[in-house]
Design a protein around this nucleic acid. Structure first.
Lengths: 117, 117
DNA sequence: ATGATATTTTCATGTTTATGGAAATATGCG
DNA sequence: CGCATATTTCCATAAACATGAAAATATCAT
């Protein structure tokens, strides 16, 4: 991850339809969803959805694969991890005055990670 | 945090100068930096920096306070936390197939949080 | 092959965004 | 008060972005 790629990823998420698609795919898990189903879910024409998905994929936030005529899209968890790590890099210069609380709070919103007090 | 505010926050970060300022403030810690010093650091005119800082502040990512003629800006850690939590909400529907690894990896890049294997 | 389905690419249009000079506002100093 | 410093607000302009119809591509079924 570098600055330019981070800007691309953030720009990809900084749009209502694309953020909704991304969050839907985060929820959906590794099996992802079909392009057409995403267009239906967001109530946009297929060409519009295709533009959005291309932008998310170019940004490294989703990945896609084809099975016969259907194209699957899923969240790219490694890409998300790289982005979030980049955003918080060198937080407070290693002094976890604010950062430790911040990050453990995010983790503690999920189940089964085990960093919580 | 809601969808609209998340889009605002992501849009605020999706620009080269603003992302650099944000990361600089994340590094700087709670004491923050002076507006003029940020303009100097980024080599942009004060009016341009003022636009950028206003957008970051409106997005809930930085906060500001005045001491005499100087205006301080600092990262708003609570705002960042709200954004990151929103992005990862309901990841994999609670089944931490991918999410637990993702989030603990972010935490383990820092020191002293203690969720790491 | 032909036709049907799923998706992308091309292209045009209107909207939003980034930039920075100039003027305005706020504060401190003598 | 009058001047200097720090920052913001106003304004105009150029560049980037979102949208979706139409045409193109890919795959499958008969």
């Amino acid at each position: 991850m570098n600055q330019d790629k981070a800007v691309m990823a953030l720009a990809a998420l900084a749009q209502d339809t694309r953020l909704s698609v991304f969050r839907l795919l985060i929820k959906a898990g590794p099996d992802g969803m079909i392009a057409g189903a995403l267009a239906d879910a967001m109530a946009v024409p297929p060409s519009t959805m295709s533009h959005h998905l291309a932008k998310l994929e170019q940004a490294g936030l989703v990945l896609s694969w084809r099975t016969s005529r259907l194209i699957h899209y899923a969240a790219d968890y490694a890409g998300v991890q790289a982005l979030l790590t980049f955003l918080m890099a060198d937080c407070c210069q290693g002094d976890p005055r604010a950062c430790a609380d911040l990050l453990s709070a995010i983790v503690c919103d999920r189940v089964g990670v085990g960093a919580c007090s």
